[in-house]
Amino acid sequence: MAHQGHPLLLLAWLATCLALASGETRYEKFLRQHVDYPESSAPDARTYCSQMMQRRGLASSTCKFTNSFVHAPAATISTICGSGGAPASGDLRDSNAAFAVTTCRLQGGSQKPPCRYNADVGTHRIRIACQEGLPVHYDRSL
Rank of each mutant, 00 (worst) to 15 (best):
51 Q>K: 10
20 L>G: 15
45 A>T: 05
18 L>Y: 11
59 A>W: 06
104 C>H: 06
71 H>R: 03
87 P>T: 06
78 S>Y: 04
43 P>D: 10
29 K>W: 10
42 A>Q: 00
108 G>H: 03
83 S>W: 05
114 P>S: 06
29 K>D: 10
82 G>T: 02
130 C>Q: 08
45 A>N: 08
68 S>D: 04
70 V>C: 01
41 S>T: 09
12 A>H: 12
1 M>F: 09
65 F>V: 11
80 I>K: 05
66 T>E: 10
23 G>V: 12
60 S>H: 07
129 A>E: 07
20 L>F: 15
60 S>W: 08
96 N>L: 08
135 P>C: 02
37 Y>F: 12
126 I>K: 12
16 T>P: 06
17 C>W: 10
128 I>R: 03
43 P>K: 13
91 D>I: 06
15 A>Y: 09
59 A>F: 02
102 T>H: 01
92 L>A: 10
79 T>K: 04
49 C>V: 07
116 R>S: 13
133 G>H: 15
137 H>Y: 14
112 K>Y: 00
66 T>H: 07
68 S>N: 06
76 T>G: 07
35 V>S: 15
39 E>R: 13
77 I>M: 04
17 C>K: 13
97 A>M: 09
107 Q>N: 10
129 A>L: 04
102 T>Q: 05
91 D>W: 06
20 L>H: 15
29 K>F: 08
84 G>D: 01
85 G>L: 00
53 M>R: 04
40 S>E: 02
86 A>F: 09
43 P>S: 13
133 G>N: 14
82 G>E: 02
122 G>C: 07
125 R>C: 00
42 A>D: 02
63 C>G: 01
117 Y>C: 01
138 Y>F: 15
141 S>K: 15
2 A>S: 13
96 N>S: 00
65 F>N: 13
103 T>F: 01
130 C>Y: 01
9 L>D: 15
133 G>P: 14
64 K>V: 09
133 G>Q: 14
94 D>H: 12
67 N>L: 03
126 I>P: 05
97 A>D: 11
71 H>Q: 01
67 N>W: 02
129 A>Y: 07
13 W>Y: 15
50 S>D: 03
121 V>C: 02
64 K>L: 10
128 I>T: 06
137 H>N: 14
20 L>M: 15
126 I>L: 14
91 D>N: 12
16 T>R: 12
59 A>G: 03
7 P>W: 08
33 Q>C: 09
32 R>H: 10
31 L>A: 13
111 Q>V: 11
91 D>F: 04
60 S>R: 12
40 S>T: 08
106 L>V: 02
43 P>I: 11
53 M>A: 05
124 H>P: 03
21 A>I: 12
43 P>Y: 04
64 K>R: 13
46 R>G: 07
2 A>I: 12
12 A>F: 11
42 A>K: 03
5 G>L: 10
114 P>T: 05
63 C>M: 00
76 T>W: 03
86 A>G: 05
139 D>P: 04
